[in-house]
Design a protein around this nucleic acid. Structure first.
Length: 472
RNA sequence: GGCGAGGUAGCCAAGUGGUAAGGCUGGGCUCUGCAAAAGCCCCAUUCGUCGGUUCGAUUCCGACCCUCGCCUCCA
């Protein structure tokens, strides 16, 4: 039974999936490399999708790409590039980073500037204007009339009347009926350069919120099952999406809203000025691998603030090695051990395997799920040590692991690195040295091999070579 | 000021009205010529503080302290 915390109701609710789960996730604004805070949200969404799929559901997930807004226009201008060229660069980078973090691709990645999306946005705005939910102001921009949608503020539990009287908000936009009214269509101005589309209200570009509303409903229908994002998108972005969609369709926009908490770095908000601002590629340059970054982002419950540190990455690395070693040992056991090992009662061991998935059913309780994994790892080592694990049981464990890893996606890359010739030579030299019990030479060669990026593990009758973790 | 999240061992982090999962670090041991990114074992009388309810609270209630986030376009 799936159970998720719904931001809308502030409660855990049963989630009953339909035939296809319609899932919308707010994607990046492609004006720069996405940072690990952004990716925390995407990893959380990936975990959710993978778990839903592991539970046998079909997920139709849409992630938008915001490729026109103030920042993209400014960036293109600064670099003297066309907007499309500029955003193409960061779209490409975004997908590279997604691959590095092993994010499952969404079903589609609509971009705001796709003609069919611009058309959908204009159609929505038109309907809103016709129904009296929107108006064109003196500056030629079109705004959503908050006063026409009493439920506005419901998701974030924001009381707009209180906001209105707040001193913090300066009424410096005189053209809007109310300060909180937000732009649906922004009239063109000089600084927009070529970022302009024709509309019934004159040339201009879409507002941010209408993008998501139009793309979500165009691709997934009026009512979607799950809508995710970071907490900071709750207000006003998601609030605005609800207002727009529900005023157009008259139906509930999203049944379930899920928001992940912020990521912090070294206990502080990540900021370029604080020098603690990381992109995925920054970390990979420092030789952290995608799966290590993924593990850190994955291993803290999504509704808890995540404190990202180098120590955390280090811990992730060691945890992953331990998992690697366990898989390696199981595989080796299956290969080498004939089915002569004594059969023990299967049922008495590993009764907790399903608990991994049951933990995730409970609002993605990843900590409890990982605890199951590590318990199983320890227990199977014990049984292997005692030589009472059966061949069949080892196969069953490996099978289980494949199901688990279809969610976690943390196995090392399946293509082992080619061992360079010079390293192979050093290894064979070391073999001879060891046969002659020349330990000084053996140790020297071990260091030499390590300098080439390979770690040696001596076992009873062979030298095992393992690549030091690098970008993978 | 308004709204919200959180304070559990050196660090990260689950959880429950009945006496504290898991990971990392550390210590011990096994293996090893020595090693190791190997394996096993051990490591919180205690869950921010102070009261209350209770046979019993880390878990429920109240107050207080601290940290963090959002409050109009930052995931």
């Amino acid at each position: 039974m799936l159970h998720f915390y719904n931001t809308l109701t502030r409660q855990q609710e049963h989630f009953t999936p339909g035939e296809i789960i319609r899932f919308y996730t707010c994607g990046p604004t492609v004006y720069d490399y996405a940072h690990i805070g952004n990716f925390r949200a995407y990893v959380f969404e990936d975990l959710l999708q993978r778990h839903l799929e592991a539970r046998g559901n079909t997920v139709n997930r849409v992630m938008n790409l915001t490729d026109v807004d103030d920042k993209t226009i400014r960036g293109a201008r600064r670099e003297g590039m066309l907007l499309q060229e500029y955003t193409a660069r960061y779209k490409k980078a975004f997908f590279e980073d997604c691959d590095a973090l092993r994010l499952r691709p969404a079903t589609s990645y609509p971009a705001a500037t796709d003609p069919e999306n611009i058309a959908a946005m204009i159609a929505m705005i038109q309907t809103l204007v016709e129904k009296g939910h929107a108006y064109q102001a003196e500056d030629h921009s079109v705004y959503f009339r908050i006063a026409s949608f009493p439920r506005y503020g419901q998701l974030a539990h924001v009381d707009l009347d209180a906001q209105r009287s707040s001193k913090r908000i300066k009424n410096d936009e005189y053209t809007k009926e109310e300060i909180a009214d937000f732009a649906l269509w922004k009239a063109w101005n000089q600084e927009d350069d070529a970022a302009s589309w024709e509309s019934p209200w004159g040339p201009g570009r879409p507002g941010w919120h209408i993008e998501c509303s139009a793309m979500a409903t165009r691709l997934l229908g009026d009512t979607i099952d799950i809508h995710c994002g970071g907490v900071d998108n709750m207000f006003p972005h998601h609030e605005a999406e609800i207002a727009q969609c529900e005023c157009v369709s008259g139906r509930t926009f999203a049944r379930l809203w899920m928001h992940c908490a912020h990521l912090m770095v070294d206990g502080m908000k990540m900021a370029k000025s604080a020098g603690n601002f990381y992109t995925v590629r920054d970390l990979m340059k420092r030789s952290w691998s995608g799966r290590e970054i993924r593990y850190v982002l994955l291993s803290v419950h999504y509704r808890m603030p995540l404190n990202f540190t180098m120590e955390g990455l280090e811990a992730a690395r060691h945890s992953l090695y331990r998992i690697d070693e366990w898989i390696r040992r199981l595989e080796e056991f299956i290969q080498h051990a004939a089915d002569s090992a004594p059969i023990i009662k299967k049922e008495t061991c590993f009764t907790t395997l399903e608990d991994f998935f049951i933990a995730l059913d409970d609002d993605l309780n990843i900590s409890a799920a990982l605890a199951v994994l590590f318990d199983v790892i320890r227990e199977s080592h014990r049984l292997l040590d005692q030589e009472i694990l059966s061949h069949n049981e080892a196969m069953a464990l490996l099978d289980w692991w494949h199901r688990v890893d279809s969610i976690l996606a943390i196995t090392p890359d399946s293509h082992p690195k080619e061992i360079p010739k010079n390293v192979q030579q050093l290894v064979s030299l070391r073999y001879k040295a060891r046969a002659a019990k020349n330990w000084i030479e053996s140790d020297r060669l071990r260091d030499a091999i390590k300098a080439h990026g390979w770690i040696i593990k001596d076992t009873k009758n062979e030298q095992k070579l393992l690549p030091q973790e690098s970008n993978s």
